[in-house]
Simulated assay, not measured.
Amino acid sequence: MNRAPSSSRLAQRISIGVAGLTLIGAVGLGGYNLASADVADGDRPIFVPINPCRLLDTRADVTVGGRATPLEGPEQITVTAHGSNGRCTGASAIPNDAVGLSMNVVSVRPSERTFLAFWGSGPNPGTANLNPEPGQAPTPNAVNTPLSPTGTFNLYNNAGSVGVVIDVNGYYANHNHDDRYLTEEELGEETQALEDSIAAVGETVGVLGESVDSVEASVGTIDQSVDALEESVGTISETVASLDGSVVALDDRIDTIEDNLPVMATGIVRDVADATPAIQQFNGPLGTTASLASGADGSGAYTVTISGLDAPIDGVVQVTAFGDEEPGVGSRASACSVAYPVTSTTTTFSFGVGCFGENDALAGNVVAEDTSFQFLIIG
């Protein structure tokens, strides 16, 4: 089993931790904006930048805004800002909700020392936004002015003749400063809460790292168990293969034993005086029967036929004679073995007094009365 090196796992954990801290930061601060002023909620102007546009140019050769002559002091004019005016059109037009302008103002060719003042509505505040002097090169200055409720502002030249160029770079519009904006105290509380969250994430990352180590140790143990199990399975497979071989050998041995088991049949032929000899008892393989044919009055040979064998059998017959005609003779074992054929499932064999010696009670081809012959077939 392939596993990531320790350095890779450490890098993964660090990545997880950083991602978690980034997420906490995004969730913790993303819903708030910071207000620098300690104010209650309500409408407060915010600055909206636009592409700079020229609202007024009093020079005769480049007139913009409808006036082509300098201001002659003391003179006050009213300039309209809302809507499309001068070159402030299209995307740079000043919307009707603007409450102030951010401008860049240039004085051109003043005839004497003077000052220029800008304001929204009401009386002249008497303040100076620019201080032009004769012989002075065109002089710019940043000017912010409120607008009247109708969207205009006032421009005043105190003395002499002076041209004025006004470029607008943005406007101010009211914005509701609701509870999304934090005070300094609230910001401190949120910052502390964020730091606590970051610390908790760090602890969680540490616990996750320990859990990863524990899981890896468990995986190692499982790997070892799997290896041991595979070895055991291999041993079992070898044992099974060996047992299979033993079973095959045992089957072969059983077949050999079965092939070599003797087919046995036993019987007793009894010859009683003045009676026809008969098979008194027969024990043979299942399904077999035995029949007897013999010479008249006990003379000649006895012929036994066994039928119903499963298969031809090659073997010998051993015969033992038992008689009581001559006192003290008792039973005598036959000295002859008779072979029988193997060509069919019916076998026939014969035996008689000729199997015994001259000194036996059965010699002379005459069978004594009450004589029994026991035959045993060994295949």
Results as ranks from 00 to 15, higher is better:
residue 207 V to Q: 14
residue 86 G to F: 03
residue 65 G to K: 08
residue 135 G to R: 14
residue 19 A to C: 00
residue 355 C to T: 03
residue 267 G to I: 05
residue 42 G to W: 11
residue 326 E to N: 09
residue 118 F to V: 11
residue 367 V to N: 02
residue 239 T to F: 07
residue 109 R to W: 15
residue 372 S to C: 04
residue 119 W to T: 01
residue 224 Q to R: 09
residue 60 A to I: 06
residue 339 A to G: 14
residue 284 G to K: 01
residue 130 L to S: 10
residue 283 N to K: 05
residue 369 E to D: 14
residue 194 L to D: 02
residue 15 S to M: 05
residue 191 T to V: 15
residue 14 I to V: 15
residue 346 T to D: 13
residue 351 F to I: 02
residue 172 Y to M: 01
residue 286 L to C: 03
residue 334 S to V: 06
residue 182 L to K: 00
residue 36 S to P: 03
residue 157 N to S: 11
residue 232 S to H: 04
residue 312 P to N: 09
residue 292 L to K: 04
residue 139 T to D: 14
residue 180 R to G: 08
residue 313 I to F: 02
residue 225 S to G: 04
residue 188 G to R: 04
residue 181 Y to E: 06
residue 123 P to A: 11
residue 343 T to S: 12
residue 263 V to S: 12
residue 297 D to F: 13
residue 329 V to D: 08
residue 101 L to P: 00
residue 32 Y to M: 06
residue 150 T to D: 15
residue 307 S to F: 02
residue 143 V to Y: 09
residue 195 E to G: 05
residue 273 A to V: 04
residue 223 D to Y: 01
residue 107 S to R: 06
residue 316 V to I: 09
residue 10 L to T: 10
residue 341 P to H: 03
residue 78 T to H: 05
residue 91 A to G: 05
residue 99 V to K: 03
residue 87 R to M: 08
residue 41 D to V: 04
residue 298 G to W: 01
residue 189 E to S: 11
residue 149 P to Y: 06
residue 59 R to I: 07
residue 207 V to G: 04
residue 141 N to D: 14
residue 302 Y to P: 00
residue 180 R to D: 07
residue 331 S to A: 13
residue 35 A to W: 08
residue 52 P to Y: 08
residue 284 G to Y: 00
residue 196 D to W: 12
